[in-house]
Nucleic acid binder design. Structure first.
Lengths: 330, 330
DNA sequence: AGGGGGTACTAGCTCGCGCAAGGTACGATT
DNA sequence: AATCGTACCTTGCGCGAGCTAGTACCCCCT
């Protein structure tokens, strides 16, 4: 299947010439183009000859001709993916493939130009919401299909049950454990700023709703002394429970508390978010929130397809969106 | 930069028309084409106008015209990537970008069509050797640049001194801290088996060389009671220092020790590998090995670039390969 | 005045494919 | 006999950019 033309790639024109028919016909057959009638005999001849010659459509040419790359870029968070998550991505990938799309996964790193600029995907879809800078950057590459959609007024991901549930569970859990004065540990990292704000608001509202006092919110940066300062002042102010933005922040806070000779959860209880595998290793093991990544992932795949068609985000929410993982830190 | 043409993408022709010059000139300027003389004035005008209009070259069109996608596909193993590996990849990605290439990472899953068929990369490069079926499949997609080449030698980054240095440093450090009876904590995960074996051998050899006793090697699996068992038996056997495969394993061991009421490093010292950021957060903070990620990433990138040019795998080794990070756990 | 040799560009073909619009042959209908 | 309809296929343009082979102009030298 390869010894014929010395190295040059087989094109649709080669298939056509070899059969003595026009290139368009080959295209129609291979694309199952609707609105074209092709005799069964020709159909078979084309398909066989294409296979015999080892014809593969040239992706770039297709993308150029139809104006779509048929690539969907899935942006992953920068932490190790659990097994179930990876499996789900594989599933989503297969699902999308049947629709003629390729799923490319991507982890953002600051060192290099984001992949959406060079890959020209039809959709960029994030497992986590994008920061404003990221949205800006994606838009600037001429990509209009971004999921989750950054709606100007009420961002869906800031109000959607799937996102709200986590922080609310964190607060409820602390209250259930008897804490009445709680604090929020926000990420110092600028890229997580807007995401942090969102979660803080949810926590604040929930605290209000449950009749708790003011929620003392502080930014935690592992690089400086902010963890130490925050812990000291929290304890002085009578805070006994800390809701952390994620597991890493929770770990940093816990760490700072332990180094000050405080007991966790005795003097200060800490709950994280995301169920990072590291959280289980820590002493004390970190209580946290596990998101229904699989459900979310499936939803995202569907959303991606709909986004390509210009349709809206599907309505179905994953059912079990967030669950509490009780461990030693609370 | 966007309000001019309603939605349509800006092409090089737009830039040219807007300046009243030919499209070719725009191309020459933007590609810094050698062998073409362009006046400095025109150069600047083109560059400014391109920026003003928000011009982005159409990747697919470029790929079609020059016959190269400028995509390098890095095939990853199907297991959670250690922190250091993710950094290598980020590093390589940045390096390749400067050369005008995009690095796309990919984990093979059986459920879907392999990405090399639809992405048309210039090179497919694997962290692990490919199976024969895989090589066959890649070849069938018309891709000739495959690394590691089926029957060439193993890539340098899999055997070179860069890999040996880390484990040796771990052992040396423990000895320096006065430990004479050490153990090795291997990953339980089957997929890391061969890596674990490799590092264990290095540790064993180094221990022999330094005149230490037998190295007690045990597999650690976070999911079962192997950490507890290992720690107990190690301590009973008089082991005082543990060399861990990576920081995660080190953390798990530390954790198990603490939970048994042992002091770290008092009763058992533990040293990790890879300098995962989580290691610094732990109490006690984890001593570890920091790899020269920049060098390794560069090597990976160079290998890929050379493959594009049809050249062979480079021989050069990264120079400063591994350094010891002293923290509280030893 | 007629080259010769730069410099600074432009015209136009090419890549492989999708797809709209246009044939053509042949039997059926008026 | 002329027209129509349909099944089947072809011609040819366009996608956006790379790049070769010019061309027009100017300066300098004999």
């Amino acid at each position: 299947m390869s010894t014929e033309n010395k190295g040059r790639r087989v094109t649709a024109a080669d298939v056509a010439k070899s059969l003595g028919i026009s290139r368009a016909t080959v295209g129609f057959v291979l694309n199952k183009t609707r609105g074209q009638t092709i005799s069964e005999a020709t159909r078979k001849r084309v398909i066989n000859e294409a296979a015999r010659l080892g014809y593969r459509p040239h992706t770039a040419a297709q993308a150029l001709a139809r104006g779509r790359s048929r690539i969907i870029l899935l942006v992953l968070p920068d932490w190790p993916l659990e097994y179930s998550m990876r499996r789900h991505i594989a599933e989503a990938s297969g699902f999308l493939e049947e629709a003629g799309y390729s799923l490319v996964t991507y982890t953002i790193h600051e060192t290099s130009r984001p992949l959406w600029e060079s890959l020209d995907p039809d959709v960029v879809i994030g497992l986590l919401p994008f920061s404003e800078e990221e949205v800006e950057s994606i838009r600037a590459s001429g990509i209009t299909n971004i999921v989750p959609v950054p709606d100007a007024h009420t961002p869906a991901w800031q109000t959607g049950p799937s996102i709200v549930a986590g922080p609310e569970l964190q607060v409820e859990h602390l209250v259930e454990r008897g804490h009445r004065k709680i604090a929020f540990a926000a990420p110092g990292d600028n890229r997580l700023r807007s995401f942090g704000e969102a979660r803080r608001n949810i926590v604040t509202n929930k605290a209000l709703e449950l009749g708790l006092g003011e929620v003392d919110c502080r930014q935690i940066d592992r690089q400086d002394d902010s963890p130490q300062v925050a812990v000291r002042e929290w304890v002085n102010a009578g805070v006994t429970g800390v809701v952390a933005f994620n597991d890493e922040i929770a770990a940093v806070v816990t760490s700072a508390a332990l180094r000050q000779g405080l007991a966790v959860p005795g003097d200060l209880a800490v709950i994280g978010h995301d169920d990072d595998p590291w959280g289980e290793i820590l002493v004390p093991a970190l209580s946290t929130i596990r998101m229904d990544v699989e459900g979310l992932g499936r939803l995202l795949a569907l959303t991606a397809l709909n986004a390509v068609d210009g349709r809206d985000v599907p309505q179905g929410e994953p059912n079990a969106v967030a669950t509490l993982v009780r461990r030693a830190s609370t």
